[in-house]
Design a protein around this nucleic acid. Structure first.
Lengths: 216, 216, 216, 216
DNA sequence: CATGAATGAGTATTCATTCAT
DNA sequence: CATGAATGAATACTCATTCAT
């Protein structure tokens, strides 16, 4: 570990992040996220400094701070962004899927949540894990968790052919196993093969759990 | 500006270290771990600097570096330590348990792995998650993972009354769900109640999976 | 513990830096070199820390690192600077000297190279010796050496009235004697008198060597 | 440049270095010097710490400090040692040389002083240069200088066949050119070839200077 | 007497953040 | 409004030196 720079402890500035109301602003935010990812993939977490992101985006630090009032905000914003992409994908590919059996819906739900073979989730890889742990605010994690759990619940409720509607706790636990397990798998294994084999087995176990009644 | 040794000015030196070399080293390392945890719990990750740990331990930075050649080594050492405690507990309470049904063994395996209601695992809490992400060396994660997985396998193999011996993949996936899920639960929920409810449901699902044959 | 920028607490800021980017940079670098020398002369090598230089310059460490990415770069930069001054002086006072006899040119060449009675070489004194030994990169030494040697060769080649044109090796050896000898003299003797007497004798010897043919 | 450790500024301890009156002590000092050189050659200047020297010698730091009250004393002692070897070699091979012409004596004087092709001077290489600059005390340099200069004077005075006895200043200047030039050559060029070619030319120039009368 | 554990001041370097231009 | 130069607190790590055993 090199010299880890000063991480400011007390809140730096309260100014709310600029609403991307105009098209240009939205465009810039997207460009920032893209630069963010590029640096991340290329140089790893350590080089992901505000200055580097601004430079890579082609704007100045000052401008970056116009959009994100702090580095934390940038991190949160990026995670939010990744989550929004995930939520949209679940809504479209699982909830909206007509004539899909519950097994098929489950399959896609897992595929998306685990980010395996899901090229429509470009930012959603192993590194997200480390990123989230840099976010200090607990509320952020809660919010993200609640939203994805809600998406899972909606998705599984959309399965009319499910023999036994799962309890909220059952869904939550399956989700934790999938989401948390994925994080752990990605931390430990860099290779895709293991991750895929794990996903297959996880799907089997989920099917099994969903095919019996939940505990009352 | 002369080097005045052995004359700490501000350090409280609450625990004078034992002299003899072998026992002393162990004692000091333990003291460092304790200080480590204390700062961690009290001030969070950001304040966990080498200087702070040394000060809290009651030794100087130089001495800390005698035991841990780098901050990374301190982190790895701490994780290792926590894992060793966990492994020992599994061996003793699960593997060595005479006349235990497989359900009972599973129960204790989960209880220990999840660190829920297991006061014998003092260092093993939610924060371990963030800590591990600070460890750069991938090998470290692999090693830890492999050892705990091996312990799980051993523990489940010790269940003579299990109707269908689980495949390696099944065990691994259950383990990932438990270990990773727990991490995620702890990240998201600070309260014990939710964690316990989740643990109960997880145990039910594990029982279910283990009571049917693994996929060939 | 918030980052309060632009609010130096203790730094005197005696010389507010000019704004416009190009001129300012040059100005600041010069200010850094001046501070560098001041500390060097006053406190010696040991106190020549990056922080001290920045403080003395009236800028912050961070700013110093904007101009010099490492301490090594600062050292090299300073040596380079001193050498540039020397090279310019040789070019102007020796090479460009119209109607000068070779003895006169040699005299000024030595005077400048030895830095004796040459107030136009403000940074060029005994301490340069110690400084150069702190520079790790060998290439740096080679480059500096080659440039000054080239200046010597040019200067001596400009002597149309030299009875026997000296061989490259002869010039090189004379240069080494002068440059290296001066360094050694300065290391050993702090007083100017000895240094001057040595310079006079060295000049006599150089004249002698140049007045006979070089070995083929 | 890495973290350069704290170099104590004020004198650490005045205790004079233990006189190697007993055979064992002398032996230990020699062992320390040997270890010193070994580390120096193998790891370079940066790893030449008191701890490393003690370890390599096979003694403890405490014991090292019994023989050398400070690191400075160790450095000075080592340089002294190298110089003593040089002085002894000059005395034996130049001053005591019967029936040697002044050219032969000069040749060996330079050979030894420059440490070129002189395997009897094991410690006397390019690195000595950097070492000497670490010695803060000016008196040390003066003493060393005066002793070697005296040896040169004695050696040249022993040349009965010298056509013109050189003045003290001439000898001193030749010595400075040789000694200082060697230092500079070794700093700039790592290869032996250049150093040898330089030595040949230097010898020619010295012969030339010695073959004419010194300035009155 | 020899040991080597302990000391802690001191160093180079980073980077989130600000605000004058 | 965008810029990017300037800030400076904070951090990991070293190593000469001491002295209790």
């Amino acid at each position: 570990m090199r010299h880890v720079a000063h991480a400011p402890v007390s809140a730096p500035r309260a100014k709310p992040l600029k609403r991307p109301s105009q098209a240009r602003a939205r465009f810039t935010v997207q460009a920032i996220y893209d630069a963010f990812v590029r640096i991340w993939q290329a140089d790893g977490w350590e080089r992901l400094t505000t200055r580097a992101v601004a430079l890579e985006t082609g704007i100045s630090v000052g401008t970056l701070y116009e959009y994100f009032p702090s580095k934390q905000a940038l991190l949160s914003g990026y995670v939010r962004h990744g989550m929004d992409v995930l939520l949209a994908a679940i809504e479209k590919q699982v909830v909206q899927a007509k004539d899909a059996s519950w097994q098929e819906r489950l399959h896609h739900l897992l595929r998306l949540t685990l980010g395996i073979d899901a090229p429509e989730l470009p930012y959603y890889d192993a590194r997200m894990l480390a990123l989230e742990h840099q976010i200090a605010e607990l509320k952020h994690h809660r919010r993200v968790h609640d939203e994805i759990l809600a998406a899972w619940t909606t998705a599984l409720n959309a399965c009319a052919d499910l023999p036994h509607p799962p309890s909220a706790r059952t869904v939550q636990t399956l989700f934790h196993s999938a989401f948390g397990g994925r994080r752990y798998v990605l931390l430990v294994h860099a290779d895709d093969a293991t991750a895929r084999a794990w996903a297959v087995e996880l799907e089997r176990q989920c099917q099994l759990v969903l095919s019996v009644p939940s505990r009352p």
